[in-house]
Amino acid sequence: MNWFLRGIRRGILTEKEFPQVQWPSELHRSKEGEVKCPTDALKEDRWDPNRCIFCRACEPILSPTGRSVQAQVKRSEPSFRRSFYLYPIDVGTCGGCNLEFRLIASPQHDMTRFGIFLTNTPRHADALVVMGVMTPKMEEVLRRAYDAMPEPKLVILLGVCAVSGGILGMPPDIRGDVVIPGCPPTPESILRALVEAKSGE
């Protein structure tokens, strides 16, 4: 059958609510006890999602709530309300963030319904999506991509490696306007953060 007709026959696949994911999701303390966290994400009884790699070493003292991990939107840009073009840059990923970021375009999530698009050049980008730990040869590539972008612009740090270095290295030396924790963050948490960053809502 013609692909176009089949596409129409399948109906609308885009979702308003997404299924719950356990790992990664917000963690809460469900038992007393000592936790040996490999990334020091648990200090003085406070869980830090920006350091957590969701390795489950803290289980069952900490357990997942199923609530999507909250991103921190420090600055939003209302001029991107109608269209928000993103340029992803991988400075040293494991491939996980790349794939989850790609899946915000899947029919279930459909980023275009929120006016979010990808661009092939930083010259046309409103936001730079930085993923991975900093690797030496990507430092200059990252700086040149950032410098090539027009103003106003946002920097989005996607995944724990870009936010804090995770378990594998050091984070890129760039200030993030939007910080999306997770290892890797789910398409739902990425999409929620992007919508907030573009409209402040």
């Binding site: 994911v21 899946l103 029919p107």
Partner: peptide, 25 residues
């Protein structure tokens, strides 16, 4: 996009079976 739909469906099946969409942990 049909194939991306299926990739996402597999990720969800993995998440339901093993807790994480990429088998971490």
């Amino acid at each position: 996009y049909r194939l991306l739909y299926y990739v996402e469906e597999v990720n969800r099946a993995i998440s339901r079976s093993c807790g994480h969409r990429y088998f971490l942990g």
